[in-house]
């Protein structure tokens, strides 16, 4: 669905990608993780056709995003981190924008708006940042585009809204959609994404499915010094040491995304060795 080959991209003074390749399939929610300034948003904007690669190719459902053809744009919706909504009532936004998306579903939109508890009669300008973001997310989901790109979607959402977001997202995915969520708040994506891609310094550090991670790695709290020493990664906490170890007994544990992220950023080789063994 999204095929990126040897992507080179840079801003005037800074190279961001030097040969990044990535293949994304429908039916999955991809978590794009990475530090600030590592190119997560840049990658999403390249996929959306808002930025053009210096070298390499991006293919989204057979379209070249940079051409920004209407048939491509109606298959891709982006929820940017910083977004703009005109100062009009919510219903007017739907009336004016939804006809551009052939698979837009009004009932679905109303359901998301109600789940997010957004006041429908208000003008968009009078809404808070979080409420506007929820409008964007609801609209993006209701458009039923094949590719949904979300850049830091949980930024600005309160605790309850983050949980609503996870619930809404979990119910919105189907086998024809590919959702790519970029974030540095890894905790917000727990139990939501089914593939993790970590990028750093313009390259992919780690790219595995949740299934593969669960089968290869074990996440647990340990009080055993020997076990902590043998662990692929450990972090001491008040209630013992949180460790990532090789999953030798085949028992699945709950993935601690934050711990995994830190482990990959600080000690990538040891984590990757678990997948190559």
């Amino acid at each position: 669905m999204v095929n990126i080959q040897q992507l080179h991209f840079g801003y005037r003074k800074k190279k961001v990608f030097t040969g990044l390749s990535l293949h994304l399939q429908p039916g999955h929610i991809y978590g794009l993780l990475g530090k600030n300034g590592t190119g997560k948003s840049t990658l999403l904007r390249n996929i959306a056709g808002l930025l053009f690669p210096d070298q390499g190719t991006i293919d989204v459902m057979g379209f070249e995003p940079g051409k920004r053809q209407p048939a491509f744009l109606q298959e891709v919706f982006m929820v940017p981190e910083e977004f703009y909504l005109p100062n009009i009532p919510l219903q007017q936004l739907v009336t004016s924008l939804s006809p551009f998306y052939p698979r837009f579903n009004q009932q679905q939109f109303d359901r998301y708006i109600s789940e997010f508890e957004i006041p429908v009669d208000n003008k968009l300008e009078s809404m808070s940042y979080g409420q506007k973001k929820k409008v964007m997310i609801s609209f993006g989901l209701a458009c039923n585009t094949s590719v949904l790109l979300m850049d830091e979607p949980t930024n600005g959402l309160d605790i309850m809204s983050k949980s609503q977001f996870r619930k809404v997202m979990a119910g919105a995915i189907d086998e024809n959609k590919c959702v790519i969520i970029s974030t540095h708040q890894v905790k917000d994506l727990e139990n939501l994404i089914d593939r993790i891609t970590i990028i750093d310094e313009g390259a992919i550090l780690f790219d595995q499915t949740i299934e593969a991670i669960s089968s290869k790695l074990s996440f647990r709290i340990s009080f055993d010094h020997e076990e902590v020493k043998r662990a692929l990664y450990s972090e001491s906490s008040l209630r013992g040491s949180a460790i990532i170890a090789n999953n030798t007994d085949g028992e699945e544990s709950k993935i601690d995304l934050e711990l995994l992220y830190k482990a990959i950023v600080t000690n990538r080789q040891s984590i990757q060795s678990a997948f190559h063994s």
Binding site: A48, G49, L50, Q69, P70, L73, P80, E82, Y84, F100
Partner: peptide, 14 residues
């Protein structure tokens, strides 16, 4: 303006 620019360019029209 980046947010407004995205809003303009991403509308499915040529």
């Amino acid at each position: 303006n980046k947010p407004k620019g995205i809003n303009f360019l991403a509308v499915p029209a040529s």
